[in-house]
């Protein structure tokens, strides 16, 4: 989030008194609202890591949901929360944790909703098995029709 209005006023040569007042208010509003580094700079400032870790960071990020977005993983999302979560993942990677450990860590804190790939549990059984059940039913259906037609 940048203070867009303010920048615009500065850049376009419209420096009237009225605009000066406006900029003052916009700037103060800006500091009131976004004191605590909303730009995700914390992510940008995290240590640069090697390629292998970067690949793993991508892999993990694709599996975690950005909790405030509409159906986006933290890999795709540009929201501040997603950036924070990514820097969390990165720091844990640097600490030498394995992919599963990191995912478990996030899962413990955010619950099932954070996992883009639902766990295989009692209540997601149907979700995971449905395609194969439908496929089998379809094949059985065609075969029984075929049997009937031969008799």
């Amino acid at each position: 989030m940048i203070n867009f209005r303010c920048l615009y006023l500065i850049f376009s040569n419209r420096f009237s008194f009225y605009n000066y007042i406006k900029i003052f208010f916009l700037v103060s509003f800006y500091f009131l609202c976004f004191e605590s580094d909303p730009l995700g700079a914390s992510y940008v400032n995290t240590p640069v890591i090697n390629l292998e870790l970067m690949e793993r960071e991508k892999e993990i990020s694709a599996l975690l949901r950005c909790m405030v977005c509409q159906n986006q993983s933290i890999l795709e999302s540009n929201s501040p929360l997603a950036k924070d979560m990514r820097s969390l993942v990165r720091n844990q990677l640097i600490d030498g944790k394995s992919n599963d450990e990191i995912i478990d860590y996030v899962h413990e804190r955010y619950g099932d909703f954070v996992l883009m790939k639902p766990l295989f549990k009692k209540y997601t059984m149907f979700l995971w098995l449905a395609p194969f059940i439908f496929f089998l039913i379809g094949i059985l259906f065609i075969l029984t029709k075929n049997m009937k037609s031969k008799t």
């Binding site: 599996l63 619950g111 909703f113 883009m116 997601t124 979700l127 449905a130 395609p131 439908f134």
Partner: peptide
């Protein structure tokens, strides 16, 4: 079958939340 995959994957989380209140995400993976 592909259609059923998309159908179940899209509607299952809605149904599950309505029935049991459990929130899950069904994403690209």
């Amino acid at each position: 079958v592909l259609c059923s995959v998309v159908f179940v994957g899209t509607l299952y989380p809605l149904l599950l939340e309505t029935v049991s209140g459990i929130k899950i995400s069904v994403g690209p993976p």
